[in-house]
Design a protein around this nucleic acid. Structure first.
Lengths: 204, 204
DNA sequence: CCAATAATTCAACGACTAATGAATTAAAGG
DNA sequence: CCTTTAATTCATTAGTCGTTGAATTATTGG
């Protein structure tokens, strides 16, 4: 029989903190920020709502804790970039990118995107992600002789954000079912172009 | 002195219905669906919350009324497409597209995107927009001999959704300040490629 | 002018929200 | 063993939410 929930500390050493974070991440990822309530997260984690406040403070704080990402460009990306110069960088980037989004951090990323796009006060999180990941990655590819990184990064971002929306949020078919290689083949060249095209006339 | 608000019908013939729609559109556009309450919309429109229910029913109904868009590809797009064949279609599409998003419907469009991306139950609205606008447009460009419209439309969508996110939601600079011609020049060729590249190997 | 109808507000309900502070139970340290 | 500290729930507060039904005021049609 199921023991009724009692007051006070539990026996054993359950990692409730982690369970809360997991529940929050999952729910933020597929419902966004506003629709998810502390109470529902608590319920999902099998915990009293006040415990969440005890550990994380406000709902905003919980969100930030749940989506906390390594802000430096992911090691996968860095590694993949070393494998060559500007030539073919687009394809290599796509492979690394899709690997990340299909990997274990996908719910954090989804949560960030969903929330940033709907709650302006939180859009700084996505902007930060853009700054710390896309811009820095483009800088890496272009090397020291940085030539209009900002514009190029902007255009690369359009292609990448769009892929996120179409493939991971809306799940358009057949796009959502394509493999890494097919995406790299198709979108890689677009990114290559944004990295190498002349852009002086765009930056007057 | 400001006349205190009284019960009952107002004098004159103020188009309150329209004012409510305008307020709702604007607020949904820059705050998304969940964050905006009926009460705040009512306040913004200078009206009692129950009047909104009287006119539109539920909040969902109000949202749909507020973002109601002509579902057929906009006339601008159709017109622009007649001007030529597949060659240069990308650039022409971008010009038409940016014209629409910089035009008077921008708040409706923003509202749809923000809401669809954060509230899964509403994402059908964006999907419908994709179906009725992007897919049909791609069909128009490709003509009768429709050759893998679905995949091509998917890739075109990635580039377009990404532009929306980067330029109109996140307002990345300098992207957000670029003119139509510069966007057409830069992104047009990407779309051209998605329209003309071989795709048989993607559709096995 | 009077009746019908349309526009509008008022007052309230029940449900849900984030948050707080105090009480309870267990584990850890000396 | 006893004290401290950490983990957890309970009870509550003050607010907001969407929605409803009745009351009030103006316009419109006969």
């Amino acid at each position: 029989m199921v023991r009724a929930k009692r007051s006070g500390r539990r026996s054993g050493k359950p990692d409730t903190r982690t369970e809360i974070l997991a529940a929050a991440r999952a729910m933020f990822a597929d419902e966004g920020y506003e629709s998810v309530s502390m109470r529902r997260i608590a319920a999902q984690a099998g915990v009293d709502p006040s415990l969440i406040h005890h550990y994380f403070g406000s709902k905003d704080d919980l969100f930030l804790a749940a989506v906390e990402l390594p802000l430096d460009p992911a090691p996968e990306v860095a590694a993949v970039l070393k494998e060559g110069g500007v030539e073919g960088a687009g394809g290599r980037l796509m492979r690394a990118f899709v690997a990340i989004w299909d990997g274990p951090h996908s719910d954090k990323l989804l949560a960030v995107v969903r929330t940033s796009l709907s709650k302006p006060a939180m859009s700084f999180v996505l902007k930060q992600m853009f700054e710390h990941r896309i811009v820095k990655t483009v800088e890496d590819v272009l090397g020291a002789e940085v030539d209009h990184v900002d514009v190029r990064a902007n255009f690369v971002a359009t292609q990448i954000f769009g892929l996120v929306v179409a493939r991971y949020i809306l799940k358009l078919e057949p796009l959502a079912s394509l493999g890494v290689e097919e995406l790299a083949e198709t979108i890689g060249p677009t990114i290559d172009r944004y990295l190498t095209m002349p852009v002086e006339h765009l930056t007057r």
